[in-house]
Structure formats: C-alpha cells, structure tokens
Amino acid sequence: MSHETTSKRHTKTVTKLLLVTVGMFGFGFALVPLYDVICDITGLNGVVNLQAADHDGATVDEDRTVTVEFIATVNGNRPWTFKPEVRRMEVTPGELHTVTFRTTNGQSEDTVSQIVPSVAPGLAGRHFRKTECFCFTEQPFEAGENRDMSVTFFIDSRIDERTNTVTLSYTLFDLGAGDDPDFDPEDAELHANTR
C-alpha cells in the first residue's frame, strides 16, 4: 500500500473522529434544553408551571380529598425567616385555596429573593395549579421587611387517584441583588416569566 494513501486515510479517519468529539461536546450542552423539554413533556422532576393557571372550567371532584403539605426552606442558611402559615391542609380537587407564607428579610440591606417551587411526588407537579403565586417573579425586600406572601392554588381533579398526599416545597434563594449594579428588575421579571 502506498504511503500517500495511508496518510490520506488517516486524515479522513481523524477528521471523522474529531467531528464526533466536537459533536459530543455539543451534545453535552444540548442535554441542558433536552432535560427541560423532557421534564416538561413527561411532568417528571416535580417541575411546576410558573405561569398562572386558569381556574375557570376546573371541575370539582367532591368524592375525594387530597392532603397538601407545605415546606419552606431558606437556601444556604441566609438570614431569612420563611414559614408557611399552615403545615398541611385537606383539599377537595378543583377547589381554590390560598396559603400565606410569613417572610422576613433579616438583613440590614435591601435584597431580592427568588423562591423556587417543587412538588412531590414529581408526577403530581402538573396537576398542582397555581392561579397566583409569589414564586412567579423575583421578590424584592427592604432591609428587615416582614411580609406575608400568598399562593392561590387548586389541585386538578385529573390527578392520579392513587395520590393522596402532595407536598409543595418552596426554597428561597437570596439573590443579594440589592447592591448589584447590573441588576435590572425588569430583566429579572422578564426572565422569571419566560421560565
């Protein structure tokens, strides 16, 4: 075999393998949107819709009740107080309920928080409908401010009949953006709405 062809064959094979390498590097990043899409389509991962749900036309299922539990966590031991006013409640699927969360910014400066919801079991996430929620947007707090924030929700009556308890967990993230020169509240709101 002539060496000219050997070196050409090498170039060809190396090019193909390098393309695979580049492609797989890209695939790693493509997994990020894919992950969101898969969670969205399948309702896995307890992802909660961050757009306000429409309660009109929701059917009420009088025959059963579902226990809803509330958990509030502050991420990273930041000096916040964040507590639901009730720990759990019995609800009838289809009926609207409102729960308030006591929130205090224990810092001596203005701070922005983002509260991220998650629902367990994961597959109940898509049936947990919120018509109004403090988690839809970032929440600015003044120094030491104490505020009651509320979420209004209903459980879709199409929820799996084997599910009798749903846990709604909120995690409060301190964005500390009060003194961030780049921080633009409008951007943040836009960002929150498109999520």
Binding site: L17, F25, F27, G28, V32, N75, V116
Partner: peptide, 29 residues
C-alpha cells in the same frame, strides 16, 4: 471519544456557573 467531551462540557458548565453567572445547576436561576 464519545463521552470524554461530555465530561468536558459538564465541567465547563460548572466553571461558567461559578465565574460567569450562568445557572446550569443553580436552582435560583
């Protein structure tokens, strides 16, 4: 050849999460 680039991508995401303000793995973002 198939998976080493994926690891490189994952650690690059960690790097940008840490220093360039991305939120690949940050729930707040």
């Amino acid at each position: 050849i198939a998976v080493m680039p994926v690891l490189a991508g994952a650690v690059t995401m960690l790097l940008t999460d840490q220093y360039f303000g991305t939120s690949f793995f940050n729930a707040a973002g």
